Simulated assay, not measured.
Amino acid sequence: MPKIDPSLYLQNQNTARTPSPELGKDEFLQILMVQLANQDPTNPMDDREFISQMATFSSLEQMMNMTNSIDTLVQSQLVSPVIKYSHMIGNEVTYQAYDEETGEKLDIESSKVVAVSQQDGWAILELENGDKVYADAIIEVRDPSIDTDEEPDSEGSE
């Protein structure tokens, strides 16, 4: 004969209630149902009051849904490598080039970033010269609109 696990007895179940500082839609609906069940039958709740409470409940539910949607949007933007590295489009980057077949190091090259994509969660910079480079392989980033090749004018104006 099988034995009954004593931990399953009702007397052994946790009956302590853990209060929550937040009032959610489930709690709001419970309060409304208790209020309806315990109202004075000789003086029932006014229709307008009931409609007002239901409208409040609906607004609360919509705000919670909107908050969840915004949180999801923010999280997806924080995680996306494309968005994280999109500011590099138009900048010139310097990187160590490799031979794709042998894996041998080639010269250090520079090219302008024309697009950013992702593969397996990694940001890949697509360059003007046709190369594709992982973002973490970049050695230097320069703004091409700032000319760094010119030496400052050493002549003083007198």
Rank of each mutant, 00 (worst) to 15 (best):
I146G: 04
V74Y: 08
I146Q: 14
M66C: 06
E92M: 05
T18M: 09
N38Y: 14
L106G: 07
E150V: 11
D46I: 08
D47W: 08
I146L: 06
V133L: 01
E158F: 13
K25R: 14
Q118N: 12
T56G: 13
P81L: 01
T102A: 05
A55F: 10
Y9S: 01
T148G: 09
N14D: 15
L29H: 05
S80Q: 10
L106Q: 13
A37G: 13
G103Y: 14
L127S: 02
D26P: 07
P81Q: 03
A37W: 08
N14A: 04
D143K: 04
Y9Q: 06
M64I: 09
P6G: 02
V116S: 01
A97S: 05
V34F: 11
M66D: 07
N129M: 00
G121L: 04
N91F: 04
P41T: 07
N129I: 01
S58M: 07
N65Q: 12
L32F: 15
M63S: 12
G121D: 04
A55I: 08
D5L: 05
Q62T: 08
M63L: 09
G156A: 10
G24C: 05
D136N: 11
A135T: 03
I89Q: 00
H87P: 03
I31M: 14
I138W: 00
G130E: 02
K84L: 10
T148K: 10
Y85H: 06
Q62A: 02
E61K: 10
Q119I: 08
E61A: 13
M63F: 11
